[in-house]
Amino acid sequence: MADLGFGQPRDGVMQMAYIVEDIRASIAYWTEELHVGPWFLLDSFTGRDPVYRGEPSRAEVSIAMAFAGHMNIELIQPKDDHPSVYRETLEQRGYGFHHFGLCTDDIDTAIADLEAKGLTLAFRAGVGSGGDVAYMDGGPGKPGMTELIEYTPGMDAGFTAMWRASRDWDGTDPVRPFGARPAAGDAG
């Protein structure tokens, strides 16, 4: 199976995600202390037709993504107290690591495969790249959830554009709108 455009194996871990209290303060930490950036910020995300543990979801989050090498880093700030995969993790463990992201060509089959291994579908929603994401809960013995990220050409192109922006990034424009094209000074 071919690698994704940003160099991660198409059937491997492509993302690590963290729940944060203040997304802008977290971006500043990752940028200033760890030299990770630029960050692509989406101030409001709910997903298309979101379902949390079998019920329609109203939870809203801010998300920011950047690359550390070939690994996508996602920061997630809950914006309300509605039930969600983020809120339940906050209540159980507090802020910090939330999930590993895995790319999948067939999200329905991947969900069924993980359910056969004892994981539970906790959240599913459509995303702007045309596919779906699904969070699988392995229970309290796991370090976090597993997010299945459905492969589409738009998904690969979006992540690859963010990765290209990170190559040889010189620290300018550390926060950019989600979906923005790389700046003129970014490697491509």
Rank of each mutant, 00 (worst) to 15 (best):
L41Y: 14
H35A: 11
G158Y: 04
D11S: 12
G54W: 08
A184P: 09
Y151R: 10
A183W: 00
A180N: 11
R58W: 01
F159H: 10
S26L: 09
A66L: 10
A180K: 04
P140V: 09
T152V: 05
K117E: 14
D186C: 10
D106L: 05
L119A: 12
F45M: 13
F123Y: 15
G69Q: 07
P83A: 12
D186E: 14
A157F: 10
G5T: 04
R164C: 08
R53W: 08
D106E: 13
C103A: 15
H99C: 08
G54L: 10
D186S: 14
S44K: 14
A180Q: 11
V20T: 14
R24E: 13
K79Q: 15
F159E: 00
A157H: 12
P140K: 08
D106W: 04
H99W: 07
T31D: 12
T146N: 03
L119M: 14
Y86L: 02
D105T: 04
V175C: 06
E88V: 08
H99K: 05
H98L: 11
L114W: 09
E115A: 11
G5I: 03
Y18R: 10
T152R: 00
L148W: 05
F40I: 02
L34Y: 09
A25C: 01
G69F: 08
L34R: 13
V20Q: 08
M136C: 02
R48D: 15
G138K: 10
V36T: 12
D80I: 06
T31G: 00
D108C: 01
F6V: 00
A68M: 15
A68S: 13
G94L: 11
S166T: 10
R87Q: 15
A112M: 11
A28L: 02
D170S: 07
K79R: 15
A112H: 12
N72A: 13
P38N: 02
D156S: 03
H35Y: 10
I107C: 00
M14N: 13
D22Y: 01
P143R: 08
A25P: 11
M71W: 03
A116M: 12
I27H: 02
V61H: 07
S26W: 04
V85A: 13
A165L: 04
D105K: 07
I76Q: 08
R167S: 03
A184N: 01
A110I: 03
E55W: 03
L75D: 07
Y86V: 06
D22K: 00
C103G: 06
I76Y: 10
A64I: 06
L121Q: 07
E88A: 01
R124N: 02
E55P: 02
G138V: 02
G96M: 13
L42I: 03
W169I: 04
E88C: 02
F67S: 06
L42Q: 13
R176V: 01
G54A: 12
D22S: 07
G47R: 09
D113V: 01
P83S: 06
L121Y: 03
M162C: 08
G118I: 05
T89D: 13
A64D: 09
E150H: 07
G171W: 02
G138F: 02
G96P: 15
M65E: 12
Y95H: 15
A2D: 15
A59D: 13
A59W: 09
D186A: 13
M136R: 01
G47T: 06
G131S: 07
V51H: 08
L102R: 01
Y151E: 01
A184R: 10
T89I: 14
G54P: 05
F123W: 11
W30P: 09
V85G: 14
G144P: 12
G139H: 12
A157P: 08
